[in-house]
Every structure is written in C-alpha cells, then in structure tokens.
Write a protein that binds this DNA or RNA. Sequence first.
DNA 1: GATATACTTGAGTCAATTAGTCGGGCTTGC
DNA 2: GCAAGCCCGACTAATTGACTCAAGTATATC
Lengths: 183, 183
Amino acid sequence: MRLTTKGRFAVTAMIDLALRDEGGPVTLAAISERQGISLSYLEQLFGKLRRHSIVESVRGPGGGYTMARTLETVTVADIIAAVDEPLDATMCGGKEDCHETGRVGGGLQEGTPKGQCMTHDLWATLNKKMHEYLESVTLAQLVRQQRDRMAASQAAQQAGAPAVQNVIVDHRKPGVRGTPAIA
Amino acid sequence: MRLTTKGRFAVTAMIDLALRDEGGPVTLAAISERQGISLSYLEQLFGKLRRHSIVESVRGPGGGYTMARTLETVTVADIIAAVDEPLDATMCGGKEDCHETGRVGGGLQEGTPKGQCMTHDLWATLNKKMHEYLESVTLAQLVRQQRDRMAASQAAQQAGAPAVQNVIVDHRKPGVRGTPAIA
DNA sequence: GATATACTTGAGTCAATTAGTCGGGCTTGC
DNA sequence: GCAAGCCCGACTAATTGACTCAAGTATATC
C-alpha cells in the first residue's frame, strides 16, 4: 500500500464530492476551487476513480461527477487503491528471494540462510494491518465527521468570531514551480 | 513514519548482527557479504544506529559492532526511526494550515475544529497504528523466528530431502510467529 | 611505533518517482 | 453550433531515495 499525497488529494476530493453529491453532479472546477487542487490534476485523479467505479461522470453542460455507490460502501482503501495503482508495500515483491533481484555487485554468498527474506513476514503483516485500517474507514464516516466539524465551527462563529469562508488548504510544499498556491 | 528500503535494510542487517552478536563484534564487511548490502551503505546505516544507541562500535582490528541493548528492548520501530529520521506520515506536514491540536489521544473528532485538513485525523490514526505495530515487534522475536527457520531448513536437508541448493522456501505461512496481536 | 584493520564522516552522483502541466479531443444541453 | 464540462495521453521539473567515494580517525598487535 503506497501512501502518497496523491492518495490524500483523492480522499480529500472525495469527501468534498460526497458532501454535496445530493445537489446533482459536482464539477471538478468547483472542487478545484474549494480544495485548492489543480483542475488538471483532479481530472487525472477522477479518471482513475471513474474507471474503478467509485464515481460516475455526467458529460456536457450541467455535468460533473456523482458517487457511483453509497458512501457506506466506499472505503479509504478503495480510493487509494484506485489512484495509486500498484498495491503491494511489502517491498520484496511478494516473493521470497527479496534480496537478489536488482542488487548490484553480485548476489548473496554461500553458507547463509538465503532464498528468503528474513523480514518478509514483518512487512507483509504491517501491510495487512494498514490495509485493514484503511478498509475500516468509510467515506460515510469521514463525511459525518466533517459535517460535525462544520457545524461546530459555525457555532463558534455565531459566538462572535469573524467568518472564514472557502477555507483552502495548500498541500504543496514551498518551492514548487507553476502558479503560486492560491491566496 | 516513513517506510523505505533503507529501513528494511537496517532491520535485515540488525537481525544478522543479532544472530551472531554473542561471538564478539561483528564487522560490517561480514554483514555486507552475507546480506548483499554494500559496505558503504551499511556504514551510513550503522552510523545512525550507533548515534541512536542501538548498537555500539569497537574500533581497531577485531572490532566491529555489537548490540548496545538487549534484543528484547529493541523494536522495529526503533530501528526505522533511527535510520529514516523523523518525519511523520500524516503528510499534512506541521507547517501547513493544518492546525494540529497537539494530538496525542488520537481519538477522532476532537474539539475545536479548525475546518482545515479534513483528513488529518485519518492519517494521524493510521500513523499511530503503524507505529504501534512496529513497536510491538522486537528484535528478539525476529531472531527467534529466523533461528526457527534455519533449524527447519537444516532438518529438512538432513531428512533426506534432495538438497536443492539453498533455495528453501518456507511453505508454512502461519503469519508472523511470536508477534503479539495488537488490538 | 609501524602497520593493518575497521569504524567515521560528509559530500557527491545518479536514476526513479512524484506531482504536477499542457493541449487538444469528445459529448451533450441549450 | 457553441460552450460547458469531461477525457486522455504526452511531457517535465523537482525531489528524493539509493548508493558511492574519498579522506579521515582510533586501536590492537607485533
């Protein structure tokens, strides 16, 4: 299981979509604006999500994306698997001869327990545990959680704090080229 | 928590060291040969392990590395933390808008939401779970496991199995032995 | 004290991967 | 038939991970 910002972007975007799915198709342009993710990048992400039947697209004016399944049946693991393609993180490719392949400068020496990677089980188990957790979290849970949060901060605002709308998170690290990260 | 091959190499090398620690200092050159890891790279790794008090070095002829603590007190998490430096995997790095509210408890939806980073808790919890698992596995367990494996393959050879080089694959896959199940 | 062994350090190289961008197509509602 | 919006594949700049090199320093033994 690979964990990159790509997967995180995808989860964030999916929460955004799920939050407003009821009002018909949601455009990528809108998600892009709200979440501060570039439109081109979102297209790339949602192309994969669509091919994995997590979302559906509606073309033409008034189009956009909608959920392809109920929120309860979409897990974080599904989303990450969809955008991050290759899924194994055991690092020794599921085979036992982890060390030999690709090693420069000759393989292993004789007289040693070779033929299997001493740490294989360790990584395999870790991988399984990570997967189990991500599979246990559904989009429905994240949406509910986010709704709670929004309600709470709204309450705080009414208590006197100035409104902050359109909160945009900048996932990018400083020093990247291209358009500066929003406001 | 970062997971790279560097961490994997380090764990592998540590198991190798632990397996022969009793016979005095083990040289990096020997580990390098047995495990097929370049000497220079091992030097880099063990420099960090030493600075984190996981191993001790003995200089001069007959020198090498020894364990600085007992096998029971060294966890996989320790080793990985030593070589892969800090960096948490929540990905919404400390600096960004993602206002982390001194998270330790880890429970979802804590008070005072900042409306930012909708996925922070998700990654923070995942991170915690990974850490918990890696912390639950000690070097002692891995060594025991490896000794079992070696004994088993030796027995297989003596039992008249046509000595197929040293390519002995572990058929039984009973998960990781000796690892306490974490919640 | 010369010498060989082995640890120590830090800077440097190189290739793979990531995180995007660009630009042109296709579909469909109005 | 135009424009909103999805669709798709090629392209690329940075970053990072993996690994090397070279020049040390410390110490045991003869």
